[in-house]
Design a protein around this nucleic acid. Sequence first.
DNA 1: GACCTTATGTGTGCTACCGCACAGATGGGA
DNA 2: TCCCATCTGTGCGGTAGCACACATAAGGTC
Lengths: 245, 245
Amino acid sequence: MNSLSPSPAPSSPHRPSQNHLLAALAAEDLARLAPQLELVPLRLGQVIYQPGEHLRHVYFPTTAIISLHYVMASGSSAEITAVGNDGVVGIALFMGGDTTPSSATVPIAGHGYRLESRVLKQEFNGGGLIQRVLLRYTQALMTQVTQTGACNRHHSIAQQLCRWLLLTLDRSGSDELVITQELIASTLGVRREGITEAAGKLQRAGHISYRRGHISVLHRPGLETMACECYAVVRKEVDRLWQPL
Amino acid sequence: MNSLSPSPAPSSPHRPSQNHLLAALAAEDLARLAPQLELVPLRLGQVIYQPGEHLRHVYFPTTAIISLHYVMASGSSAEITAVGNDGVVGIALFMGGDTTPSSATVPIAGHGYRLESRVLKQEFNGGGLIQRVLLRYTQALMTQVTQTGACNRHHSIAQQLCRWLLLTLDRSGSDELVITQELIASTLGVRREGITEAAGKLQRAGHISYRRGHISVLHRPGLETMACECYAVVRKEVDRLWQPL
DNA sequence: GACCTTATGTGTGCTACCGCACAGATGGGA
DNA sequence: TCCCATCTGTGCGGTAGCACACATAAGGTC
């Protein structure tokens, strides 16, 4: 989405600009933030924050994906949205909440940069481009949450699985995902058997192939055909919001 | 939620401060805005905005309720959230979007104040209390959208109807709603017959009574018992966000 | 290479909700 | 007052997803 301009190969394979939000900042802003950005591994299943917990850091994923979900009293949960290299986890901080009733965990392991809450608040309150970037991202997030909610109401598990796979591919940059059906199921808030069935259908159609904790996408257009409109809407809207800036 | 301080009875029964967001502004801010606030009737079924449309005004409902919903390709729709005297319609404006993929219509008629987009943007960009109020409201909205999405996934029609009724009561200030089952159904994105069944259940339990387009709530605690947790979560979170300010 | 944890496949009811079809009731307007 | 558009009640068959119960398979560990 954001073309990363050619630059001298860095010694570490990790750079803050791998995150599109950070990449969208002015060079001077990013330079000022850089010393405060701490590269952290995000491990499978790691809990980033729990409902009601005070947020100490915000996270800018690069290769990892963080899932925001609400856990119901019954124990079942539902993903609200996921955040990868296209966003930041912890918007409640600058929106004036400090905390939220939802949880954040890591379904796809990788890395990300974290930043102290205090620093982010300062930057946000300074106004300017950083504020605009963060607000615009929040708007995109709202669109995704909206669409997920509507999708929950009307679309089949197979369609939702396609949507989830496509969004996850976009964020991971790889065509192989390391994740079990069990975890996908709890992420989407459906039964594991439902995912087994839907994934089997996709595999028989030749669009994916999977083995014990690994899913390979063989034919992406096939997934797009079988997905509901929700993927395209989110994709389009997110792209649109990055246009002028 | 916001105790309206005693004041000399105005000649018109309508005042901007009936909307909690406007009431939360500093007196001088509200005084500056007042001449630009246009009182408008919001009629049943009126379309406030359509997906992709450029927003010309933002709306601060007082007695009306505006429903934000997404209409799918299939024609079926799902309510994302509703806005009454507790909020404002058109947050995309100051979030940097100018438009959204969702629709806004009026399921409960009444009145509201509208304000030109340009004016709101100016005020928002001025920072200060207005900005903080609007951002905090957006955060509350996100919570509601989140909860609605999770509710769509896991809860029964009857539970969702209870949630919807309770939230609508809170916003309308009356214990009688003028709305048909048909409209509730399309708002929630379920079949009309599903609402008939759920409403019948509530009526037999003695919690509501209804006749052709009118619903009276007889026993609110009963609704709270039958509602899912979602109502309480939203209520609590919205209240929390108004605390310190 | 054997073992054992963990992931995946499958079957059998069961329930909630849907789509459709139509009957009955109600209340505003001519 | 009557009429008729509109709202509400109800039944029937179909389907998606759930809960539970196992069987099987894969792959890491010792």
